[in-house]
Design a protein around this nucleic acid. Structure first.
Lengths: 227, 227
DNA sequence: CGGCTCCTTGAGGTTAATCAATCCTGGTGG
DNA sequence: CCACCAGGATTGATTAACCTCAAGGAGCCG
């Protein structure tokens, strides 16, 4: 279902069902094999994409033919958004694995937004939220690893407690990803994550059994989160 | 003339005269001296701004007093747009030079936005651009300092060459900020920046005299920029 | 000249990445 | 039921990056 794919993308998550349906109406599912070209640097800009499944790399071709990879796109992320404000693609995109995409033609997208200001407003709102998130992500990366981890854990606890009955002491949270993934998300490597978790455990700040984490000392975590 | 100032801003360029007049009606011109605070991280969000003249930096204050510069705003650009859908400013803004701004109160702007979808479209485009920028900034922070510096220099060169007659060998670029500021923008400290510049000089990758930088070996810089 | 501020240089320490080895743990087949 | 594997997770030792602290320049204006 296209709507479900859209919901999985941070850009569109948080939009109402009606708006998602309108977006889905102009989204064209496209399939690519591995190592296929999606668009080329310099090409007139026609569309932007949501990656549903697979992997895509964004790269520039240098004058001498060598390529410089700018970014790896993971499922759920969008790419080519710059066509909204550029006439030509500033870089090229190739698939790395067999991939499913959603294609949004720029002109149709534009038409939808003028016809349905509500969609535009909702989109602006999510973009604003995303920007705040990106902002704090930048801030975090300047902090040492323990602070980043502490923030992540506090955040996780906040979110999972909000779901559970409020007021009740939220015993354990589940780590939603493998530790390898978590390390990548924190901008570090599994080894460092493992050691840092261990330090937290030995300091009795958290308890950890397999992938269930329990916060024991919130003030301490908050102190660590501040640098 | 306020309308002329608005036209110079990418956010509003391309809007019709009628819309520009409506925007001008709710824009309040404001003047600031150098090193003045415009808004503070966490402050209740009241307005966003267009920089007409001067310079502004957007930064986060860490608990220990260190600051992380997220972005330098140049004349014509907008900042604080995220307050349109947030209650509080996610970062602080200070002037770097004497500056002229246009101030847009959030509630008035919101009202205009529902009445004029075109304005929303333009806003989405700028926000998309900002998000692309923030994304690459995050990516950069995971790279070592020399790579970040190399990217910055290449970027600077691209921009300044675009302005000069194209095709002509762009000899020297001017660093637009003090090295202290540049270090903050790269997420490092002046000492490390100084040493890294020195390494580049000794490797004959760049030449540097006071604040004029000359790129000598583009392939080498591009190699460094890749990690 | 003195007093600035900004930049550079040096030495030392800390953080975290890297490399390599070991340990779980769940799944598989005998 | 158990031996055995494969992947992820941990642990240890080493190395490199870069921040910190401290001490000089270099330019600039009174």
């Amino acid at each position: 279902m296209i709507v479900d794919d859209l919901k999985r993308s941070p850009l569109f998550a948080g939009l109402g069902d009606a708006q998602l349906l309108e977006l889905a109406a102009i989204a064209r599912p496209v399939e690519f094999e591995a190592d296929a070209g999606i668009f080329l640097q310099g090409e007139p800009a026609g569309a932007f994409f949501v990656l549903v499944r697979g992997g895509v790399k964004i790269f520039k071709t240098l004058r001498d033919g060598r390529t410089a990879t700018l970014r790896h796109v993971r499922p759920g992320e969008t790419f080519g958004e710059s066509v909204l404000f550029n006439d030509h693609y500033p870089a090229s995109a190739d698939t790395m694995d067999d991939s499913s995409l959603l294609r949004f033609a720029v002109d149709e997208f534009r038409r939808l937004l003028t016809a349905e200001p509500e969609v535009g407003l909702a989109l602006i709102a999510t973009m604003a939220r995303l920007m705040v998130m990106l902002n704090s992500r930048i801030e975090e990366l300047l902090l040492p690893v323990p602070a980043r981890l502490a923030r992540y854990v506090l955040d996780l606890r906040d979110k999972q407690c909000a779901v559970a009955a409020s007021g009740k002491a939220c015993a354990g949270c589940r780590l939603p990803t493998s530790k390898r993934e978590l390390a990548a998300r924190l901008g570090t490597v599994p080894e460092t994550l493992s050691r840092t978790l261990d330090r937290f455990k030995r300091a009795k700040v958290i308890a950890l059994r397999s992938d269930t984490i329990e916060v024991l000392d919130i003030p301490a975590l908050e102190r660590i989160a501040q640098r």
